[in-house]
Simulated assay, not measured.
Amino acid sequence: MDTLVDDSSAKLARRIQLERDARGWSLADLAERSGVSKAAISKIERAEVSPTAVILVRLATAFDLTLAGLLLRAEGDAGRLSRAGEQPTWRDPDTGYVRRQIYNRPDHPLELVQVELPPGRQVEFPASAYARIRQALWVTDGELVVHEGTERHVLQAGDCLGFGPPAPVVIANQSTRPCAYVVALVRN
């Protein structure tokens, strides 16, 4: 199984720089579009730091990509079949959340992601992360609290939430056990 943090940090760093260069953007341009500081982007591109999920979402959104799309581009293209042992994973260095890219292809509208969120941890995403996608979240194990704008949803294993209009989102595991969930998303 590929783990972007362990053996592909350099690939991710190169991909971010390639995406920026392909658009003719300076560090300042990307910083303005993403809300991530020039210094942080520079360190990420030099593979001096591993970006958090929040930072990667902001960068991906600036490139008009989903997080999955950015990670897939960093790892290279895959075929129609996504074998379990070949699905790339990524660990957020800040929260310890582990994200497995189950399925994503540039020629297919659907992306599937499996996430394990450690107990007592949360991940926050800006509304801009949801501007060009529609998604549903299905809890497969544990309990999850989702704050979507002003709405609060408590989800148990088996529950599924379809997200509404773009809003800031906080996904929190307030329990004492890990929580696993699957995200299905399509681009608008």
Score class of each variant (00 low, 15 high):
75 E>Q: 15
126 P>K: 02
78 A>M: 13
177 R>S: 10
92 D>N: 08
89 T>E: 13
127 A>H: 05
42 S>H: 11
163 F>C: 14
124 E>Y: 01
55 I>F: 03
18 L>E: 15
60 A>H: 02
186 V>A: 15
25 W>C: 05
167 A>W: 05
158 G>P: 02
12 L>A: 00
159 D>T: 09
119 P>Y: 08
56 L>E: 00
33 R>D: 02
166 P>D: 09
177 R>N: 07
61 T>H: 09
139 V>E: 00
29 D>A: 10
145 V>W: 02
15 R>C: 15
59 L>G: 00
33 R>F: 06
116 E>L: 11
188 N>T: 14
92 D>Y: 02
176 T>C: 07
71 L>C: 04
18 L>N: 13
42 S>T: 05
58 R>W: 02
123 V>R: 05
46 R>E: 11
75 E>V: 09
122 Q>W: 10
180 A>H: 11
157 A>K: 01
142 G>I: 01
97 Y>T: 11
113 V>P: 00
30 L>T: 08
168 P>Q: 13
168 P>A: 15
110 L>K: 11
112 L>K: 12
55 I>Q: 06
6 D>T: 10
182 V>W: 03
6 D>P: 02
5 V>G: 03
106 P>M: 04
94 D>T: 10
176 T>P: 00
59 L>C: 08
88 P>T: 03
88 P>Y: 01
178 P>C: 09
81 L>D: 11
120 G>I: 07
180 A>F: 10
75 E>D: 12
121 R>T: 15
165 P>W: 05
94 D>L: 08
176 T>G: 06
64 D>M: 09
91 R>I: 14
131 A>I: 12
37 S>E: 02
49 V>R: 06
32 E>S: 10
172 A>I: 06
1 M>A: 15
70 L>I: 06
84 A>C: 02
116 E>M: 12
47 A>R: 10
133 I>C: 07
2 D>M: 08
